[in-house]
Design a protein around this nucleic acid. Structure first.
Lengths: 341, 341
DNA sequence: ATGAAAAATGCAAGCGCTTACATAACGACT
DNA sequence: AGTCGTTATGTAAGCGCTTGCATTTTTCAT
């Protein structure tokens, strides 16, 4: 046994089992290359010592880590939770481990986290959305690290992507809202700078407004970080206007829940007095009262597909193809016709 | 520059800067040991190459990773989110990185995750709760890895801990409920096997029942995994009894929200027809209608203190002392007197 | 039995970094 | 100018593992 008070090494196991370190290594990684008797002897040595291979050493020697890194904008709410869960389940099935970190929606933190993850030996990366410093894409290429974008589908992105058409999805919802008779529309969006999902969702609303020949002046857009309180504050702002909107489209469910909450505090009936919609269809959307009408995103499928795509890129050295997934509107209780129609 | 399509190494930087690798290493880790002119030369080489130190190599050579591992029971809801956030902020301030993984409340997965984290070079570990295979404590000692328990304070735990008295906190709440006149009480608990927090909270209710001379037969306890749907199902079960409880104490806010939701689906008024309480005071508790009466846990303080305690254990090789934090009942809207009183 | 192919094992060279130790460079005093 | 104490830098030995290649053992057809 090696120095006391420190984990046993391959060498310790090899000595105990009376074989070379190479054999022990093979026992652990390619058991079928080792004859059964030896394998058992090694196994008992491993058990006896409570041996665990040192990951850093393994990564160095093998020059791969079987680890995938993911940088998501936030862990504070459940937006990415379900998709990431599916992503990780699929990875696990193929023998990969997931390392997650969050960027707090800040580009410079994302950049740092990417470097950290690469330095930690990530074999591949999952990124959310397309908007980022081009330098990052260059580095990824230079380091030869395969990466995949999720949560946003763009046919001509820098990287292969598995996602949905944020713009079209939001336009569809906005069309539905306008179709119900709403004319004055409010939008509570996330900060669009450096966030293509937020930006495209806004553009989707604008598309619908134009298509229906509404005045752009009837559209009020507020951008605010994705937090419940901010949704509430933005709602207050929107309703304080001379002619407040009759429908408010929120950039995601979190903002919508904030708006909903504030509406109730103000004694407003939803959707009687004002309609509110979300985006993402996270669990919360079904729990609040009234239940939120929102855009359903196939989180689990997206996560699963992203994983297999990325693994494909890793193992076949291939380019990766990308895939657009479909969203659909989930009609629940928070959207109705305007009061004065 | 090294082989194309692969990250640059210390050697590349050293050559470009015309110094030895040792000097480059010192520039990065102990800049004040290097004279300014050299330092600048090295810095430009680093910038020019986009160099990032290889973490695995660094860990191997330095025999420490400045990484702390945390294994939490779940990431699927926000129970641990706020505390962990504070934990990680504090770690970050001291130059440590946090690696998180989740055990899905399964002891065997937790055990595996601990090994994984240690194999990955974690210098220290944060664990949730005390109940686990004693073997784990032995291994931690054998490997010489400092570990700290949070979310549960036990004066005589195996490991130093930063947490609160789950039993007393729940007893206090139960006393309050009984004080309001409730006699038939339901408990929707998490699975208590291998989960001291769940177990102690149940015991807390039992303590209060005994103290107030209620019959133990008036207490119905259901154990179910911590998920919203399970809270709802358990609520149905409880209310289907001959003499349904007038107050239901839930093991945490997630279960309580599920119960609340089901109550509404059943057309029951909370707290008019039945009272429901939670535990933890996560964000959700303030968002649901009616707002949840629950036990407030000082998550952020717990996270922060856990971090500094653990860092202390790491850097002073000291034992770590532990600390009991206070909880308090947050009276909101979901608890009232029983209907028939 | 015998030899050649196949299977199992051992040997040893790194992987990219840190760090004790050795050496060189620099000043500040006689 | 010569000496010594500092300070800056270089040298090289690993850290624990994987893996190509060399070597030994087994297997099996003849």
């Amino acid at each position: 046994m090696s120095k006391l008070g420190s984990a046993p090494t391959l060498d310790d196991v090899a000595k105990l089992a009376g074989v070379s370190t190479a054999t022990v290594s093979r026992c652990l990684n390619n058991p079928d290359q080792v004859v059964k008797a030896t394998r058992q002897r090694v196994q008992s040595a491993v058990d006896a010592l409570g041996y665990m291979p040192n990951f850093a050493a393994r990564v160095m020697a093998a020059k791969r880590s079987s680890t995938i890194g993911a940088i998501i904008p936030t862990m504070e709410n459940a937006i990415f939770a379900r998709g990431l869960q599916a992503f990780q389940e699929e990875l696990h099935q193929h023998g990969y481990t997931l390392l997650v970190s969050s960027s707090a929606y800040k580009p410079e933190i994302e950049e740092e986290q990417i470097k950290t993850l690469v330095a930690r030996g990530a074999d591949g990366l999952l990124l959310i959305g397309h908007d980022r410093n081009p330098q990052i894409y260059e580095n990824l290429e230079r380091w030869n690290i395969p990466a995949l974008v999720a949560w946003s589908y763009l046919p001509d992105g820098q990287l292969p992507c598995i996602g949905f058409d944020n713009r079209a999805a939001m336009a569809e919802l906005a069309n539905r809202v306008i179709g119900l008779g709403h004319r004055r529309i409010g939008v509570i969006s996330g900060i669009s700078a450096g966030n293509d999902r937020a930006r495209l969702r806004i553009e989707g609303v604008q598309d619908a407004v134009r298509q229906n020949d509404l005045a752009l002046s009837d559209l009020t857009i507020i951008e605010t970080p994705y937090e419940i309180e901010n949704g509430a504050a933005a709602f207050s702002g929107l309703m304080a206007q001379d002619m407040p909107p009759t429908a408010i489209l929120c950039g995601n469910d979190v903002l919508a829940v904030g708006a909903l909450h504030r509406a109730q505090e103000m004694g407003l009936n939803v959707p009687g007095d004002v309609s509110i919609t979300g985006f993402d269809d996270i669990e919360l959307a079904r729990i609040v009262t009234p239940r939120l009408t929102t855009v359903h995103v196939p989180h689990r499928e997206m996560g699963r597909r992203a994983a297999s795509e990325l693994i494909g890129m890793l193992e076949n050295q291939a380019g990766g193809s990308g895939k657009r997934l479909d969203t659909r509107i989930v009609e629940r209780q928070s959207l109705g016709p305007p009061a004065d129609s």
